[in-house]
Design a protein around this nucleic acid. Structure first.
Lengths: 219, 219
DNA sequence: TTCTAACAGAAACACTGTTACCAGATAATG
DNA sequence: CATTATCTGGTAACAGTGTTTCTGTTAGAA
């Protein structure tokens, strides 16, 4: 009882926003929790995102997280979607180019920068930082949304006959994506040395993939 | 006391091999522990490799593992080297080809099969299954040894002028490696759907990389 | 106002990696 | 050979994890 008094005295502000969110609706509360987790993710890395730390940041018990997201994976899925939004935004902000091949090169550059700037998000989304997290339907949809820009450009290039081969647009995206992801992930795992050499590999890989997809020969 | 009697009665055989190894030398004991961990890894996956489970399998206390490997990461490093040996073996067993490009395609095929057949090893080595494991000097050396075959073939191809560009052999290996790893890892993370479609992406990616490295145009 | 039902917090459970402590075996010395 | 010293390995604990159970409170309906 005295403990309760102390806690409510010490953290009136946080409790207020928490209570406010509770009063409005559950969706707002969910958003609040996801925001807290996202802050934790970006400030202290994926391993710092624990149920206890999130609930501490929210000044509530761990039970809340389980009521709202079933389990930790549910929270991770929301963070995944959050990361997709960021990535989508980054893609939208990339310089366009008249030549599709160049446009794709720009997208590749953006993807590298996303991995560097939002490395915690990257590790969560594609790096397997949460061992038991697998993308579900909604996550997959989020991925597609994030890569919408890629899809448009590649699809256009295909219609113009610039990309030979019998593969559908999604497959081309995946080839592009996987190829670049490999470099970023190996680098993050410590297999490619320092940033400079990793980035060097990345650029070479990017140019190879693009030029071979388009069958232009700019080495 | 009675517990001790029961345990020593129930598992005389295991204790015997453990004691035997102790009598011979520490290196043998290390090997025994690594073998136990490797079995656990392959039979139950990376997340089953816990210090307690390994020591249970060895019928000894967890202290032993820490005496022999400092911490869990030390054990993981040994498993990494073990995986490197397996991979090296697989590469040595791949069909050779007169044309370097074809030889590299074969290596690519082997790498995929390694990822499928020894998926637990793959996740441990390249998948970041042990969050805090980063390859050290010795691990890096193990990686190079595993990829020795690749190095030879690529180096030869370079000497024959088949691979243009100013990149050294190691960089070419990394481009090749990372490109393929991306597909395997995204697939293992559940981002590429079922095996067939992932494998389809993999093959396409493989042929693109090889053909663009060699600048042949067999699409 | 009273009753009921949902909810949230504390504490516990089953794990994890890691370490402090201590008994017992081993080794060195008198 | 006896005694002491070393040191090695097992038990139990610590600090952390995700998750669940139990219980008191609280909010809404009758």
């Amino acid at each position: 009882m005295s403990d309760q008094d102390i806690s409510s005295n010490a953290s009136t502000r946080k409790l207020k926003t928490y209570q406010e969110a509770r009063l409005q609706n559950i969706e707002n509360l969910r958003k609040l929790v996801v925001d807290a987790a996202a802050t934790l993710l970006q400030e202290e890395g994926p391993e710092a995102v624990t149920v206890r730390k999130v609930s501490q940041k929210m000044d509530c018990s761990t039970k809340i997280i389980y009521s709202l997201f079933v389990n930790k994976e549910g929270l991770a899925q929301q963070l995944y979607l959050e990361g997709c939004k960021i990535l989508a935004n980054e893609f939208e902000g990339t310089p366009k180019a008249a030549v599709p091949a160049q446009h794709l090169l720009n997208f590749g550059e953006t993807f590298w920068e996303f991995g560097q700037r939002y490395s915690s998000y990257y590790k969560l989304m594609f790096g397997g930082a949460f061992a038991d997290f697998k993308p579900d339907e909604e996550s997959m949809h989020g991925t597609v949304t994030a890569m919408q820009q890629l899809l448009t450009v590649i699809s256009n290039a295909q219609e113009q006959g610039l990309i030979p081969g019998q593969y559908d647009t999604e497959s081309v995206i995946r080839i592009f994506w996987a190829s670049l992801h490999g470099v970023i992930h190996l680098y993050m795992g410590g297999h490619l040395g320092d940033v400079e050499s990793a980035y060097s590999i990345y650029r070479k890989n990017l140019s190879l993939i693009v030029s071979s997809l388009f069958q232009t020969r700019s080495n």
